[in-house]
């Protein structure tokens, strides 16, 4: 039982990590396009099309599929409450990756907010 829990936890870390890599590739592809201005249907369609030509986006798909497969395995074996509370580490991964790889600027406010969300998710999920 203990061992099963550890494996589940490891799998959840892995799925979070893969999803973080997926988001990194996607965000860096989008940033390289400098799509600004207003939303409208045609512009979004063009934007998505240009995005889909980028190899980085397909890399992001690969990681997203890996993440999904692991997540399906987790769901098939773990308690949902536990799975979702452990998945809150995802927010820590995203914050660190955004800060150190994408070089997004973090104020204290953003760190504090992210920390509160992580704690909140653990509280909500553990029942």
């Amino acid at each position: 039982m203990r061992e099963g829990l550890l494996i589940t936890l490891f799998m959840i870390s892995l799925t979070s990590l893969c999803d973080t890599i997926n988001q990194l590739f996607l965000k860096s592809a989008i940033d390289s396009m400098k799509f600004g201005g207003k939303f409208n249907f045609i512009r979004i369609f063009k934007f998505i099309f240009q995005l889909l030509i980028k190899p980085r986006v397909w890399l992001s798909f690969v990681f997203s599929v890996i993440s999904l497969c692991i997540w399906l395995l987790v769901l098939s074996r773990a308690d949902l409450n536990f799975a979702f509370s452990a998945d809150s580490m995802h927010y820590i991964f995203i914050a660190l990756a955004s800060r150190f790889i994408l070089k997004e600027k973090f104020s204290h406010l953003r760190w504090l907010g992210t920390g509160l969300i992580v704690m909140g998710i653990v509280f909500v999920s553990l029942n």
């Binding site: 907010g113 969300i117 704690m119 909140g120 029942n127």
Partner: peptide, 26 residues
Amino acid sequence: ISVLRWTGILFILTGVVLVSLSSKER
């Protein structure tokens, strides 16, 4: 809903507001 869960909801809400504000700053 248990007290723990309400606390969690409150934490998430506060966190979301703070993060949104941190983006508005600049």
